[in-house]
């Protein structure tokens, strides 16, 4: 009897999990932008790793959504709205540096959101310099009571790695979407399990003063490689 109940439960779990772990990745949204440290308790030249993402410092990203995946595409309208994104509440808990390479680890609890703001009457996202400033992040997180934040999620196991010799790095985090009016377009089974990842790079003349890196990234559910097993091996799991 217990075995039947267990099998029923497992079947239900697999049925719910199938849409989330297909054989190909599924995009939620992609973005570009710039990142900065806030709070930045150890300010200084970015060439010195000790000043970059020291323990206790905060990490933030502002930018523009450049692409939506199949779950959201039917519900968004880039001809009418400007879509912006904001990553915040990430605090450095680990800072490891050796041979020109940095690993920064963040406490769980960071958040990523995207917003919409009317192109005709809204305020265009404006980076300015040395954020936080009069326009950033404020013009990336506005839109009024009807528009504004559309979808957001919590981050965990976030890391950023950076090679000071190559001037490139990447960030990587798990994400569970859990807020915003557009959450209704995400099936319950697909709200956890997203990966938020992207490039972090510099130097470049397009990086406004006071920002650290330009960011290009996306949020997607990764495919799980198909496992090849025999029926005997599968049955053995439940004996």
């Amino acid at each position: 009897m217990k075995r039947k109940v267990l099998l029923l439960l497992l079947t239900a779990v697999f049925a719910l999990a199938v849409p989330a772990y297909a054989q190909q990745y599924e995009l939620l949204f992609a973005f570009t932008g710039f990142d900065y440290q806030d709070p930045n308790s150890v300010p200084g030249p970015l060439a010195d790793h000790a000043d970059y993402l020291a323990v206790g410092e905060g990490y933030k990203v502002v930018g523009f959504v450049t692409q939506f995946g199949p779950l959201l595409t039917p519900w968004v309208d880039p001809d009418t709205y400007e879509y912006t994104n904001h990553i915040f509440n990430l605090t450095v808990t680990g800072h490891f540096f050796f041979g020109g390479f940095l690993e920064a680890d963040f406490a769980d609890g960071g958040r990523a959101r995207y917003y919409r703001d009317k192109l005709t009457t809204g305020t265009p996202g404006t980076y300015g310099t040395f954020p936080p400033n009069l326009t950033s992040p404020s013009t990336f997180i506005d839109g009024g009571p009807i528009d504004g934040m559309r979808l957001g999620g919590g981050l965990k196991n976030a890391t950023l790695t950076y090679d000071f010799g190559l001037n490139q790095g990447n960030f990587n985090s798990e994400m569970t979407v859990d807020e915003g009016p557009d959450l209704i377009y995400i099936p319950a089974s697909q709200r956890p399990g997203w990966t938020l990842a992207g490039l972090a790079g510099r130097p470049n003349a397009t990086v406004p003063a006071g920002y650290d890196n330009q960011i290009t990234g996306d949020c997607k559910i990764l495919a799980t490689p198909a496992a090849h097993k025999t029926w005997g091996a599968v049955k053995a799991l439940y004996r």
């Binding site: 995009l27 992609a30 570009t32 932008g33 710039f34 930018g63 523009f64 959504v65 450049t66 692409q67 880039p78 001809d79 400007e82 879509y83 192109l119 265009p124 996202g125 980076y127 470049n204 397009t206 990086v207 406004p208 330009q214 996306d218 997607k220």
Partner: peptide, 17 residues
């Protein structure tokens, strides 16, 4: 204007994922 609004500053050609 619409396209520019989604570009911000920096990118010239953005790739599809």
């Amino acid at each position: 204007t619409s396209a520019q609004a989604q570009c911000g500053t920096g990118p010239m050609i953005i790739f599809n994922t």
